[in-house]
Amino acid sequence: MASSSRKPRPAIAAGGQARALAARMVTLQADAGMTIAMRMPILLRGALGDSHGQREAASAVSEKMSAVMESGFAASQAAVMFWWGVALNPLAAVDFAEEAAKLAHSTLEPFSKRTRANAARLTGRKR
């Protein structure tokens, strides 16, 4: 029987990936909450006719659309790379938890990048 070129990873590696993913989600949620809180007064002024608020609303919508597109492409690319790896080396040991964490990280990256930048911009803090 042919041996695998990949060495089995301990369960701790998958746990580390899960912790990193959870930390990223917490940071993303904190930055998103800060962005929403800082944007609400600006968007309210935009609803009342302020041009800065209207530009901020348009910017928010376009950022979300581009993040969704970029996230979809990243998720597709990660999934394709996984399946190509399985197809080209079918005897390899596959850690599905690690691969799922990689997929989730690549999917979240466009959103976390934008929310981090928006929170920094709106609060005036340095990145």
Rank of each mutant, 00 (worst) to 15 (best):
R9F: 10
L91D: 10
S5Q: 09
M40T: 15
A74P: 01
D50H: 03
M38W: 06
A87E: 08
L88R: 10
A79R: 03
S76T: 13
A60R: 01
A58G: 13
G15D: 05
K102L: 07
A11F: 09
L43Q: 08
L103P: 01
A104W: 00
R45C: 06
V68H: 09
S5V: 09
A58S: 10
A75P: 01
S62F: 06
A30P: 01
L44Y: 07
T107M: 04
A22W: 04
G15L: 01
H52D: 14
S76I: 07
A37L: 07
I42S: 03
N89D: 15
E56D: 06
S3A: 10
R19E: 14
A20H: 02
Q17C: 13
M38S: 13
K102M: 11
V94N: 01
G15N: 04
A100M: 14
F96H: 10
G16Q: 07
G15S: 02
G46C: 02
A100D: 15
A67Q: 06
A87Q: 05
A11D: 12
A14I: 03
A67V: 00
A74L: 02
V86A: 05
D95N: 02
W84I: 15
A87C: 06
A92F: 01
S66F: 06
V80Y: 12
L103Y: 01
L91S: 12
M38R: 14
A32Q: 05
V61T: 09
H105M: 09
A87S: 11
A23C: 12
A13P: 03
R19T: 12
S59N: 12
V68P: 04
A92E: 15
K64F: 14
R55E: 10
K7T: 15
H52I: 10
A14N: 05
M25K: 14
G72A: 03
T35W: 01
I42N: 04
S76K: 07
T107D: 06
L44P: 04
R24M: 15
A37D: 13
R9C: 11
M34S: 12
Q29F: 07
P8Q: 08
R6F: 15
K102P: 05
S51M: 10
Q29K: 07
G46D: 04
L28H: 04
K102T: 12
A37N: 11
S3Y: 10
V61K: 02
A100S: 15
A104E: 12
S71V: 00
Q17L: 08
A32D: 08
A58T: 09
A67T: 02
G85K: 00
A47I: 05
G46N: 02
K102R: 11
S4N: 04
A67D: 08
G72S: 03
T107Q: 02
M34P: 06
A97R: 02
A11Q: 10
I36C: 06
L43I: 05
A78E: 04
L43N: 07
I36K: 05
I12T: 15
S66C: 12
L43Y: 07
M25E: 14
